[in-house]
Amino acid sequence: MDAALGQRAASHNTPATPRLAIEARGLVKRFGGTLAVDGVDLSVPEGAIYGILGPNGAGKTTTLRMLLGIIDPDEGERFLLGHARPQEIAGAVGYLPEERGLYPAMKAPDAIAFMGALRGLPLAEGRKRGIAMMEEYGLGHAVDRQIRQLSKGMAQTVQLLGTLVHEPRLVVLDEPFSGLDAINQGKLEGLIRDLAAKGTTVIFSTHVIAHAERLCEQIAIIAGGKVPYAGDVDEARDRIPAQVRLEVAQREGEWRKALPSDYRREGDFFMFSLPDDGVEPLLRALIEGDAGILSLSIERAGLHDAFVAIAGEAAARQLEADQAAGVAA
Rank of each mutant, 00 (worst) to 15 (best):
V28Q: 08
L27T: 04
R30F: 00
E23V: 11
F31M: 05
P86K: 08
G47F: 04
H83I: 01
F31E: 08
R85V: 13
T34I: 14
I70H: 10
A48Y: 06
R85N: 15
A48H: 14
A24R: 01
R78T: 14
D38H: 13
N56Y: 00
L64M: 15
N56F: 00
R65L: 12
L81T: 10
L53N: 12
I71V: 15
L68Y: 07
A84L: 03
K29F: 01
T61D: 05
K29P: 02
A58K: 05
V40S: 08
L81C: 11
R30H: 14
D74Q: 02
R85C: 03
T63V: 09
P86N: 07
R85F: 02
L81W: 05
P45F: 11
Q87I: 09
A84F: 00
I71C: 13
G32N: 01
V44W: 08
L42M: 11
E46H: 02
T62K: 01
V37Q: 06
P45I: 11
G69T: 09
G69C: 12
F79A: 09
G69P: 10
R85D: 15
A48I: 00
L81N: 09
N56R: 04
V28D: 03
L27C: 10
G57P: 06
A58I: 07
F79Q: 02
E23W: 02
D74G: 04
L27S: 03
R65H: 11
R30G: 10
G59K: 04
A58G: 04
G32V: 08
I71N: 00
M66R: 12
G76S: 02
